[in-house]
């Protein structure tokens, strides 16, 4: 899979961001038995971030124009 340098950099940063966001201590902030919009805070955060992560990845990987291998 050939990607441009800038896309690779974005993906690496995204991965680091993901590992940080989905681990201690950030997760501990949301570890509360409360609901937010009717959904447990922790669940809301995890799934919200998860979806955002996937969408960002899709945006970065989206085929735009012709890319040189």
């Amino acid at each position: 899979m050939s990607l441009s340098k800038s896309r690779k950099e974005r993906l690496v940063v995204l991965t680091i961001l993901g590992v940080l966001a989905l681990d201690y201590p950030l997760l501990a902030l949301f570890s509360r038995a409360e609901l937010f919009l009717g959904i447990p805070v922790l669940l809301f955060y995890l799934f919200g971030f998860w979806l955002a992560f996937i969408l960002l990845m899709a945006a970065i990987l989206k085929r735009k124009g012709v890319e040189k291998p």
Partner: peptide
Amino acid sequence: TLIAALWWL
């Protein structure tokens, strides 16, 4: 999900 961002690598 996290590692998929590095699959290209």
